[in-house]
Design a protein around this nucleic acid. Structure first.
Length: 435
DNA sequence: TCTGGGGTCCTAGGACCC
DNA sequence: TCTGGGGTCCTAGGACCC
């Protein structure tokens, strides 16, 4: 299939690794190749399944008990994020050998702009795409699927078309064939809710949506879906974001513990650990937080949360621990089983923006910075939580064996629904104080 | 679909100001 | 004290993504 750029103003690639975690494991350990490999042992459900496993019907989210039933020989591994991150970095570097306009969209996905490279490379856009695909396979031993199109949304469609190791090019000429076979819910950026809305309007395929007049789209949808409509029609709205992400809107840490607990001290320790971990990340990025949200998740999957504004932005855990305890006391109900805790730090700004004048004693601030920076250094060197606050002690003693790779005592029963569904129902807002 | 963990963006509506 | 109109900023909450 050849791709004629003359039809289109730009040539974008979407590069999507196939069964990424499982593929990395197979690349690292040749004995796993050709075999059903599952990652997610630490959670008790499938995080990623190799294509050999997928053929047997093993999908993301399936419990490991079911996996063993379906396939007793399946190789079940704990997720090893350090390894996956290395593969990820190398994959992006390989793509950058062809073009510097690369967006690291997620650990296993990239967008790349190859507009204008046909002449210098003496290759068609399709061949450039396949060239990158081959380089990744040769160098890393994993396969990726590649989509070529004039917009990111169409690129996604193309990359997903022939997985694994697939390639598809969507042009203005062949676009309709692809979109006619695509359910609106499979479009990137259209989820369950919007799909329902579209069905009610009598739209089921991406093509039907793309073919509605612009006015109709403007009357029935807000900006995000108007943009998707443009992209489906080949008008590029979403740009390739090359810049490395250096700032965050929020930083959160949450952890499920098994078994659940009704012990106030234990649950609080878990929460304190979340707060510590979130602040470690905040400090690593030289940020300070202005607001904190803490929440508890009950055994019934109800979220109860409270937020507090901080009088002064901070990056120091100990300053707000009394506040966290206060919030916790308001949230915690005795005789209730909790399965997880979490902390979100938001209102993030760079730590240079802290106004010294707000600090009673600038020398103290300096000292604190030094203390925390040595804590962070030690943690980096000897592992997280070499040093930790006394209040999170119970969390650390428990987590010792839970974190031990390959010896998870109890399979956690988890599923992907997650925090977007969190409801901090009608809770009073407590204004915090940093003292 | 029986339930991780970490994020983002958008919008409506209220607060506040002139 | 009432009234109108307009602007900006902030926040809560929804929806979506990997």
């Amino acid at each position: 299939m050849s791709y004629h750029g003359s039809y289109l103003p730009n040539a974008l690639l979407h590069i999507d690794a196939d069964a990424f975690f499982a593929s990395c494991e197979q690349a690292v350990n040749p004995a796993y190749r050709g075999k059903p490999v599952i990652t997610g042992a630490e959670r008790g459900i499938v995080a990623a399944a190799s294509y050999e496993a997928k053929k047997l019907g093993i999908k993301r989210g399936v419990s490991l008990r079911d996996v063993r039933k379906i396939c007793p020989d399946a190789i079940i591994l704990p997720s090893n994020y350090e390894t996956y991150s290395l593969f990820s970095k190398r994959m992006f570097d390989i793509i950058r050998r062809t073009t510097s306009a690369v967006e690291e969209y997620s650990i296993d996905e990239a967008f790349a702009d190859i507009t204008g490279l046909r002449r210098p490379m003496k290759m068609s856009y399709s061949d450039i795409a396949k060239h990158i695909q081959t380089n990744i396979h040769n160098d890393l031993g994993i396969t990726v699927s590649v989509g070529l199109a004039s917009t990111k949304v169409l690129g996604k469609v193309a990359a997903n078309w022939n997985k694994p190791n697939g390639f598809a090019a969507i042009t203005s000429q062949n676009k309709e064939q692809y979109l006619a076979k695509l359910d609106v819910e499979e479009i990137w950026g259209i989820g369950r809710q919007t799909a329902k809305h579209l069905y009610r309007l009598g739209i089921t395929t991406a093509l039907q949506f793309a073919q509605r007049p612009e006015n109709w789209v403007k009357n029935n949808f807000t900006k995000p879906h108007q943009e998707i409509w443009q992209e489906l029609n080949g008008h590029s709205v979403y740009k390739i974001e090359t810049a490395e992400k250096e700032s965050y809107a929020s930083i959160s840490k949450t952890r499920t513990f098994t078994p659940s607990s009704a012990n106030a001290e234990f649950v609080f320790a878990q929460l304190a650990k979340n707060v510590e971990n979130a602040f470690i990340k905040v400090r690593r990025h030289q940020l300070v937080a202005k607001k904190i949200i803490v929440y508890l998740k009950t055994q019934q999957y109800r979220y109860l949360g409270l937020e507090a504004k901080l009088n002064r932005p901070t990056a120091f855990t100990h300053e707000i621990l009394p506040l966290v305890r206060q919030l916790f006391k308001q949230l915690f109900v005795t005789n209730t089983q909790y399965r997880a805790t979490g902390a979100v730090l938001c209102g993030l700004q760079t730590d240079e923006s802290i106004q010294m004048s707000l600090f009673e004693n600038p020398l103290e601030l300096d000292k604190l910075k030094k203390v925390y920076s040595s804590i962070d250094k030690l943690s980096n060197k000897y592992g997280k939580h070499t040093i930790f606050l006394g209040s999170s002690m119970p969390a650390h003693t428990v987590s010792q064996h839970q974190n031990f790779r390959g010896s998870v005592p109890i399979a956690k029963q988890l599923r992907s629904k997650a925090l977007n569904q969190r409801k901090f129902m009608n809770l009073p807002v407590l204004l915090g104080s940093v003292k």
